[in-house]
Amino acid sequence: MSVKSRRSLLLASGALLAVAAVAVPVVVGTASADPASANQPRIVGGDKASLSDHPYAVYLTDSGGNQFCGAVIVSSTAVATAAHCAKAVAKQDVRVVAGREDKRTDVGQVLGVSKVWIGKGYSDPTQGDDIAVLTVRGQLDYRPAQLPKSGDTAAYREGTQATVLGWGRIADGGDRSDYLRSAQVPVVSDNTCRSDYSVYDQKTMVCAGYEKGGIDACQGDSGGPLVVGDTLIGIVSFGDGCGKPGKPGVYTRVSTYTADIEAQAKPRVFG
């Protein structure tokens, strides 16, 4: 898979970009079985993770139970994901699966979606604004991730160690993971990321990964979380392949959208 969307393949600035539909290198399935998998990455070079440590990590399926993206709980009634994930499947067919570490089990919750908010100006991952908030039908029983302050820069300093989470592919073009996986990746400077991707926009994007590659999100990881501690700083968006040297993963910069996410995630009040 070339530039991770990590859901669909895009031709941008002469590079084949694959949008990451599920945070961290995750494998994307076929279009018929996985509507959003065209550019999905999965965690590459990571390890098995536990929901006891990251209870806010969730994934999205279509009405047939096919996982196509990742997401992250931001309130008792909402999850954040990538805009390209939210647009991949019709609202009435999206399911949010929470509390399920192993996709082969039936533990946890499976909730439908009642409302979809997509970042203003979104057209495709390489143009920025790759953010969406899904309001669920019912209540999520798991602790949400913390959001950074609007415009915060501290968590985005070069070298900051962050954790990416997902159920995507464990190698570029490899098998998808049945279990939640995580990987540690350092935040990359804006200047370095701009030299790696001509489409890079430091206001809406942030890069994380190693110059030598080997650890990254992959197909199926799009929409999943990049966290520092329990603070959500990024959403898996796109990249060039999975774990390629000199091609870090590109994530949506959450601090740019904190106010929007909070407004959309506010629990509904009925009179």
Rank of each mutant, 00 (worst) to 15 (best):
S52F: 12
S222Q: 02
Q184P: 03
E262S: 04
G246F: 07
L51V: 10
V187F: 07
Q109V: 09
G220Y: 08
S76H: 06
V58W: 11
V250S: 03
A80R: 00
G213D: 08
A208L: 02
S150N: 14
P245E: 09
T163G: 01
K91G: 04
P55T: 10
T135S: 14
D62Y: 00
G213T: 06
S222A: 13
C207K: 05
R143H: 00
Y179A: 09
G168M: 13
P267K: 07
T77L: 03
D93H: 14
F238A: 09
G234P: 05
A20W: 12
C193E: 01
S189T: 02
A86Y: 05
V116A: 03
A265S: 14
T258H: 02
D47T: 14
V89H: 03
V79I: 12
D152P: 07
S114L: 13
G128N: 10
A33F: 01
G138N: 03
S255G: 07
M205G: 02
V96L: 04
Y56F: 15
A88E: 01
A31P: 05
A88R: 05
A90W: 00
G243Y: 13
D130Y: 02
L60W: 00
D201K: 12
T126W: 05
V24E: 07
Y251V: 13
V133P: 01
R181Y: 14
Q264E: 14
S52R: 14
D221F: 10
P225W: 12
D141S: 15
L111R: 13
D124V: 10
V110N: 10
D34N: 11
D221P: 07
Y142A: 12
D34G: 09
V133W: 00
I43Y: 03
P148L: 12
R100W: 06
D175I: 09
G46A: 06
D240E: 15
F270W: 05
G249N: 07
W167N: 00
G14L: 02
D152S: 08
K244W: 06
A31D: 11
T81E: 03
L147M: 09
G229K: 03
G239V: 11
A217V: 08
C207E: 08
Q146I: 01
G209N: 12
A49N: 11
Q40N: 09
C242I: 01
P148H: 11
Y59E: 00
C69G: 01
G46D: 10
V97S: 04
N66S: 15
T77Y: 01
R95F: 00
Q146L: 13
T231G: 07
G209K: 11
V113E: 01
V19C: 08
S5R: 09
Q161G: 00
